[in-house]
Amino acid sequence: MSYSPVTETPPKPSHPRNTWSPTDPMDQVDLGSIDFIPPGEGRAYTFGRKTIAVFRQRDGRLFATDDMCPHKAGPLADGLVGSGKVICPLHMWKIDLETGRCLGENGAVRTYPVRAVNGRILVTLTA
């Protein structure tokens, strides 16, 4: 599962869904405040040569994928987002944000586990 609900309180270790104990601190990257992404939109983040897109649905769910449509490398972070899908702004390819698979077309993007903790976005770059 590549998402979890936005939580405004620290995770409770007893609750399995919110259990988060970093085994390798490098795996978890703090992308900054959740407020950077307006509700229902996506934004891009770069790590050197790599760019990922993080999406914040209005229902609070977060998703992260590579910021590159498998079709013509369109910027997915600029797409339309909702019900676990993003529509690429270039040629309207639709991508399932949970699996990374393109819907109705061949191809897939890589997805990354991402969650909000204390209002900050944490993405796991290595699973």
Binding site: P25, M26, V29, L31, G32, F36, R43, A44, Y45, T46, F47, T51, D67, A77, L125
Partner: peptide
């Protein structure tokens, strides 16, 4: 905002 640069610890 364009892609926001992020520093990873490594």
């Amino acid at each position: 905002a364009g892609p926001l640069p992020v520093e990873t610890s490594s």
